[in-house]
Design a protein around this nucleic acid. Structure first.
Ligand SMILES: NC(=O)c1ccc[n+]([C@@H]2O[C@H](COP(=O)([O-])OP(=O)(O)OC[C@H]3O[C@@H](n4cnc5c(N)ncnc54)[C@H](O)[C@@H]3O)[C@@H](O)[C@H]2O)c1
Ligand SMILES: NC(=O)c1ccc[n+]([C@@H]2O[C@H](COP(=O)([O-])OP(=O)(O)OC[C@H]3O[C@@H](n4cnc5c(N)ncnc54)[C@H](O)[C@@H]3O)[C@@H](O)[C@H]2O)c1
Lengths: 241, 241
DNA sequence: AGGCACTCGTGCACACATTCACAAAGCCAG
DNA sequence: CTGGCTTTGTGAATGTGTGCACGAGTGCCT
């Protein structure tokens, strides 16, 4: 495999895409959406980029640029109409209809997820939860009965599921991913601490608690001065300097 | 050991920047670290940037550049010594000692987190879990007794906690953050779906399930062609024009 | 010893993201 | 209708991240 010469023609799809929205923007739109929803509920009809930026904790210019990818939906001198903006963002994110999800793994985390109402409320109803452990099959979590993982293909097909959530131990996560892909799922949210290997066409996002904590640790360590190199010989670098 | 109190006078020297490691790199180091740990366990002594890149699902040049921020710890023609690299990454991430964490909110998620062994195993023992609901106080989760939130300052101080985890409903998250900051916590991992407002010096990372799902939704929608619904009528906006 | 195969470390060019700054556009008062 | 005020939308500047390409070490084989 080391002979594999970098193939230029590989990968990049031609620009058949309509307006492509930058990843960074896509990841902020849900935040704007939630804030706008809250504002709408509070009776706010109109909001400026600066107001929204404040609430979202970002720069106003960034808000304007982000929203400009959706089109020119603001009114100069006034701001954005909240309800209309909500509609546009929802449309762009594909939230005009529900996306049922299937959860693989009914352990600690799977149970918390299944019991969490916020899922369905936001347009992602739990179409099913499966586990390989037969002693867990049949129990009911958050109104959904746990089914055996062999029933996964059936759940995915009959409920038209596109999104799978992996909540198995790391050692089983690749197996879970393989099964999900085989069943027809095209997007995966992975909570297991491993790097999944899936076909290129499958969209994977990971939520890794250990990574997050270690990033915080990095900043704490560096805040503490980092240079506590006095007592222990442990810090003895400079060897190969 | 040598527990340096996290500096009361947060004035400190502004740019005490030794080598600053790019954020993107910091977020990948934990991934490398986990993989290297697995390799070490499997008896692998040495690994090349290409081998590590393959396992981490990234580009080999990126691995080399990332590792180069730690120093020149590789051997040309050979690769990196796994054990030494593990040591260096751990040191850089501040993982040479434990970072106790305190969890605020003992609901669905808080329980899953407290019951999750992977926390302590990776150097982040649960120093305490608190809740405002007195009916939850006293119950035991994952070996830790739930205590009342008023005890937060005491827990943070006696256990020297720097990292707080917020697992309360969104409406209570800002309150939780305020209490954590007041108690002396300087890093926060937030699971609630709101934008926290904290002093600049506090490091906050968020894990937002709804955002992740909506990003997946965006890609699904765009994969589907985006124009599935021609049926929908009015834009809902007061017809401008 | 010399040559050769291998792999690191990094300069460089390009891509992506953020922020600034300002003209264009809308609103309103008079 | 005009002028002043506000806020958008976006070009341009700056900052950050990625990936290629290749020189420079290193170890092994002859
Ligand atoms: N619990 C948490 O708070 C938490 C936090 C962060 C990350 N995680 C990660 O989430 C994952 C799940 O954690 P958990 O605490 O729920 O673990 P768990 O052991 O409680 O649950 C795992 C479940 O997956 C099932 N399972 C195992 N192999 C399977 C397979 N091949 N197919 C289907 N189901 C299978 C098991 O039967 C079990 O019910 C782990 O990877 C963990 O690292 C959990
Ligand atoms: N459960 C999940 O799987 C899940 C998934 C994604 C996100 N979340 C988010 O995590 C958070 C917690 O979810 P959950 O399902 O555990 O909710 P939950 O309602 O089960 O638990 C919340 C807990 O917080 C406690 N609490 C409320 N106000 C408090 C305060 N001011 N101080 C301290 N404790 C307080 C409550 O007593 C309760 O025990 C929510 O913000 C939710 O959106 C949960």
């Amino acid at each position: 495999m080391c002979a594999r010469v970098p193939n230029v023609a590989d990968g990049m799809a031609p620009d058949r895409n309509r307006r492509r929205i930058p990843d960074a923007t896509v990841s902020r739109l849900p935040v704007y959406l939630r804030i706008l929803g809250e504002q709408a509920e509070a009776g706010v009809d109109n909001i400026s980029s600066e107001g929204l930026a404040e609430l979202a904790g970002v720069n106003a210019a960034k808000v304007r640029k982000d929203l400009s990818y959706l089109g020119s939906y603001g009114t100069r001198g006034v701001g954005y109409e909240v309800a209309y903006l909500v509609y546009q963002i929802r449309r762009e994110l594909g939230l005009t209809h529900d996306w049922p999800v299937v959860i693989v793994g009914a352990g600690n985390l799977g149970q918390a997820l299944a019991g969490y109402g916020g899922f369905g409320e936001r347009g992602f109803p739990v179409a099913g939860i499966v586990d390989i452990d037969t002693t867990k099959v049949g129990t009911v979590l958050g109104g959904t009965r746990v089914r055996h993982i062999d029933e996964l293909p059936q759940i995915v097909q009959t409920r038209r599921v596109n999104i799978g959530v992996i909540a198995t131990p790391g050692a089983a996560a690749q197996d879970a991913a393989d099964r999900l892909v085989k069943a027809g799922v095209t997007s995966i949210l992975n909570f297991a601490p491993i790097v999944l290997s899936v076909p290129r066409a499958i969209e994977v996002r990971k939520v890794d608690l250990a990574v997050e904590l270690q990033i915080l640790s990095y900043h704490e360590q560096r805040r503490a001065g980092g240079a506590i190199h006095a007592v222990q010989s442990g810090t003895g670098r400079s060897a190969t300097a």
